[in-house]
């Protein structure tokens, strides 16, 4: 994996202030949604970003897309700083980084036909004439598995199944010929039998179109076969990152181990001991002292309450943030 860096994130932070300052209170609290994240994505690489709700993975996606403004840190795209751009500076960039959303029922405008939806990005960017657009739309739709495209063009989203809608969302991203796709839980709303085809589709795109993918999910189980690297997030931080096999087969952070242990294995003969963490992800307003994971950690010791561990190199590609590793 020594392809050129395409997207790089350094020390990225996003704090949301909660509670509008009103006449009666000026107390400011902030949610540490993304707190000091470093990540490098290379050309046609697939990184899976895994974590429970509230870990900051979706905020990270919005930051990468420029749909939220970071509090601190830098985002580099092809070595150019894109952290703070205004709308007109960002517009050419939008062609190169596209997003696929979680809910295919919500992310399509019900009053537009499929043709209008997939053509819209071309119109917004003023690309091509009518004939050229039609050809690009057809190609994007067929690359997204909507074959033959003509059958779908005049339909409305409600006439399609969930899997087909997600393909429309993917087609409308592909039509701009992006280099990076940020996919935020693209299959969590779909049936199991259809999930595989959407995942396979994304996996094929990196081969056919050299697209790099950031695949955001809460389900470690679904990243197995197509992610090159896996990053596990907890409360706004990456707590473990490594190649897919390193993370899935030799997890070092206790949180990763617990997450892996609760993934249901589709074989009753392999029922196994599960590490069930108590409680739920704490509120990111009042972060625990020391290691953020210590209140739920099954192996925490005294120093975990005090020291905040940094990511520790385990190999050239594998890093985990736990005080017990050294």
């Amino acid at each position: 994996m020594n392809a050129e860096k395409i997207l790089e994130v350094r020390g990225l932070k996003k704090y949301f202030e909660v509670g509008r300052p009103s006449l009666f209170s000026r107390k400011k609290e902030s949610v540490h949604a993304v707190d000091d994240v470093d990540l490098t994505l290379r050309r046609s690489e697939v990184i899976a970003l895994v974590g429970e709700s509230g870990c900051g993975k979706s905020t990270l996606a919005l930051l990468l897309m420029g749909l939220e403004d970071p509090t601190d840190g830098t985002i580099l795209f092809e070595n150019g700083d894109i952290t703070h751009l205004n709308d007109s500076q960002r517009k050419p960039l939008r062609r190169k980084i596209q997003m696929v959303f979680q809910d295919p029922y919500e992310s399509l405008n019900p009053t537009q036909t499929i043709e209008e939806i997939v053509t819209e990005p071309l119109k917004v960017h003023g690309l091509g004439d009518a004939a050229d657009r039609a050809e690009r739309v057809r190609k994007a739709m067929e690359d997204a598995g909507l074959k033959p495209a003509g059958v779908y063009l005049k339909r409305y989203p409600h006439e399609l199944s969930g899997g087909q809608r997600q393909r429309v969302v993917i087609a409308s991203a592909l039509v701009l010929e992006p280099e990076v796709i940020v996919a935020d839980e693209p299959v969590s709303m779909l049936d199991v039998s259809i999930r595989a085809e959407v995942i396979n589709l994304l996996a094929d795109l990196r081969v056919t179109r050299q697209i790099a993918v950031i695949f955001i999910t809460h389900d470690l189980g679904s990243v197995g076969f197509f992610a090159d690297r896996v990053a596990v997030m907890y409360l706004g931080r990456i707590v473990e990152i490594g190649t897919m096999l390193e993370v899935l087969e030799q997890p070092r952070h206790p949180y990763t181990k617990a997450l892996l242990s609760v993934i249901p294995v589709p074989n009753p003969r392999l029922r196994h001991e599960r590490i069930i963490l108590q409680g739920e992800t704490p509120n990111p307003i009042n972060l625990p002292s020391g290691c953020r994971f210590h209140p739920r950690c099954p192996v925490a010791v005294e120093k975990c309450k005090v020291d905040d561990p940094a990511l520790f190199d385990l190999s050239s590609s594998h890093r985990a943030a736990c005080l017990l590793i050294k």
Binding site: V192, N200, L220, S222, F225, L248, N267, L270
Partner: peptide, 21 residues
């Protein structure tokens, strides 16, 4: 259906999907 379900004990295995709806 079983083939379409990701199995963590067999990473790298390509998922097969059931064509159609």
């Amino acid at each position: 259906l079983l083939k379409a379900f990701p199995d963590l004990t067999k990473p790298k295995k390509k998922l097969s999907s059931i064509p159609g709806y």
